[in-house]
Design a protein around this nucleic acid. Structure first.
Length: 286
DNA sequence: AGTTGCACCTGGCTGC
DNA sequence: TGCAGCCAGGTGCAAC
């Protein structure tokens, strides 16, 4: 489900509820999600105060006042909802909560519930000093909404690459946080074919072409617009208050195969790249 | 080294 | 109505 805008939307919702609060009760209702939970997961969390909630790539990172950080990844179908705690956290097998896997009761009386039908998400506890060098993070690429992301950076990252633009933009070790939707949308806005070689955006002397500069600009724009819209809700993504994001209404190519391109009137096509669907307009994306 | 394919899961949709 | 088949926003690893 969640690419950068969806994770950022969730982060903002959780931040408002969690930062400054203590974890009064934690329930973990199964031994694993994508990976096993850390040893003594609940025990290590109870009593901790949440000092900050950050996002890096598609990861949520809760800074705790102890020595650890809580890492949370939503996988494909994870979501958080915030409700008022009424009574103890239900155990497993309770009706209507089959995929509620973790719940945190806060000192404020709020309850944060993690739901994830496909269980591709995971949670991890990492000592705070080691967190940046942890295998999950040490190889993660640049933040596309960060100050240093521009055409020159894109050129540096893509120089010499013969792989497709689509694959290069999805590569989390280069740029962190883009997924299938926003790559398709950004390439359409930039008028660039997803099949073009990534290195073709770089001049011989290593400086960015006008295309690289434009692509960096539209990536930033599409992500900012999506964050402002609360992300894209196709099926699973919800804001923490249960509301839907609405950026899906702004898609220009994603999921629109056989429809006319709004820019040039050409037909939007769907192809497969590296086993994943790519949507683009063959008329105006070159 | 760089790519591709597959695996991990469940649920929703399509078509027979 | 049922069921098989296919597809899905992510990522890590094995295999070419």
């Amino acid at each position: 489900m969640p690419e950068l805008p969806e994770v950022e939307t969730v982060r903002r919702g959780l931040e408002a509820a969690m930062v400054g609060a203590r974890l009064a009760a934690v329930k973990q209702r199964r031994p694993d999600l994508r990976f096993p939970f850390p040893e003594r997961f609940a025990e290590r969390l109870i009593g901790q105060r949440v000092e900050a909630l950050r996002r890096r790539a598609k990861y949520l990172i809760a800074d705790l006042d102890g020595a650890e950080v809580l890492i949370m990844h939503l996988g494909m179908s994870g979501s958080f909802r915030i409700e008022q705690a009424r009574g103890p956290i239900p155990g497993a097998g309770v009706k209507n909560s089959l995929h509620d896997h973790v719940a945190f009761d806060l000192s404020t009386g709020a309850r944060i519930v993690y739901n994830d039908p496909r269980r591709f998400g995971f949670m991890q506890l990492i000592p705070r000093p080691e967190f940046a060098g942890h295998p999950l993070f040490h190889n993660i690429g640049i933040e596309p909404l960060g100050d240093e992301f521009d055409g020159a950076t894109l050129a540096r990252l893509f120089a010499g690459k013969t792989t497709s633009l689509k694959a290069a933009l999805l590569d989390q070790t280069l740029i962190a946080g883009l997924g299938n939707i926003y790559v398709c949308e950004a390439l359409h806005r930039a008028g660039l074919s997803p099949r073009r070689a990534a290195g073709s955006l770089v001049r011989k002397d290593g400086t960015p072409s006008a295309r690289a500069t434009r692509l960096a600009r539209v990536i930033r724009a599409v992500l900012n617009e999506a964050v402002a819209a609360g992300g894209s809700s196709l099926r699973d993504h919800r804001k923490t208050d249960g509301a839907l994001g609405y950026f899906q209404h702004s898609f220009r190519v994603y999921g629109r195969d056989l429809e006319p391109c709004a820019r040039c009137g050409g037909a939007v096509r769907r192809i497969a790249q590296a086993g994943r669907a790519t949507f683009y307009c063959g008329g105006c994306q070159r």
